[in-house]
């Protein structure tokens, strides 16, 4: 019986395999966390101005933001990554002239750029929706009190809209974490990249199981953190 259990366990965690690839897998985990963490944060910084631009009355600004969101939301992330890594990366002479070749020859930077541009478009739409969800009466109260536009936005509108945005933003982050596996296709050794490498050498499918569990682990941590933030942002609501 215990022999059977050991066999079963070896199907899931083979000690030899773990010795060879366990540590690299954890390094891959760190790459994934960095990739998603940085691109999501940059996407946040880019997404808010995009959302405001999309709602702007200035026609050219609005059109630019619309076009941006339309393209990056409407085309596959994989295509965007390939366009940047293989497309822009093929213009070596140009990038060397402008001193950006170090950036475009590096798969990690290209993935970071593609993910940032992509998630910014999604986040812009999330912000736009959440800003529109703030009741009109709140804007009117700000105006009636003579609040400056910046004060009204930062102190009244933004905190209320963030509560609305939090759910969809969390969703977007979780989708990003999983979509980041795409980076492994352009030679980035993130979780999936290491798993692919290990599989190509050993043909042992269990590395994919490890990869799946690692993604699950990150998502679970994110889920818990989000729950805390939501609790904090909604402390004024009757619970």
């Amino acid at each position: 019986m215990s022999a059977f259990l050991q066999d079963a366990l070896a199907l899931v965690v083979d000690p030899d395999l773990f010795d060879r690839y366990g540590w690299r897998m954890l390094e891959g985990l760190w790459i994934t966390v960095k990739l998603v963490g940085i691109s999501f944060t940059l996407g946040l910084l880019l997404g808010m101005p995009l959302a405001l631009g999309r709602m702007s009355d200035v026609r050219p600004v609005q059109l630019f933001c619309r076009a941006y969101i339309y393209f990056f939301r409407g085309s596959p992330l994989l295509a965007q990554l390939f366009l940047i890594y293989y497309g822009l990366g093929s213009m070596r002479g140009f990038w060397q002239d402008v001193g950006l070749w170090w950036f475009f020859r590096d798969a990690w930077y290209c993935s970071l750029l593609a993910f940032t541009l992509n998630t910014a478009a999604y986040q812009a739409e999330i912000f736009r929706g959440s800003l529109l969800a703030v009741p009109k009466g709140q804007y009117e109260a700000c105006k009636a009190l003579g609040l400056h536009r910046a004060t009204a936005f930062l102190k009244v509108v933004l905190p209320q809209s963030m509560l609305v945005a939090l759910g969809p933003l969390g969703n977007e982050l979780i989708l990003m974490i999983k979509a980041s596996a795409i980076a492994s296709l352009v030679t980035v050794y993130d979780v999936m990249g290491v798993a692919r490498l290990a599989f190509s050498r050993t043909f042992d499918f269990q590395v994919y199981l490890w990869a799946a569990l690692l993604y699950l682990l990150i998502v679970e941590i994110v889920r818990r953190v989000l729950r805390r933030i939501e609790w904090r942002l909604s402390r004024h609501m009757v619970r």
């Binding site: 009741p135 009466g137 709140q138 009117e140 109260a141 009636a144 004060t151 905190p159």
Partner: peptide, 29 residues
């Protein structure tokens, strides 16, 4: 700024305490 308004639906800022509702405009404006 000399003209105040009271609304049918109050329009208080829900994420701020009563006191912060009252001090936001005086401190910032």
């Amino acid at each position: 700024r000399e003209v105040g308004m009271v609304f049918q639906h109050f329009n208080l800022f829900p994420h701020m305490s009563v006191l912060d509702n009252c001090t936001l405009a005086p401190t910032t404006v």
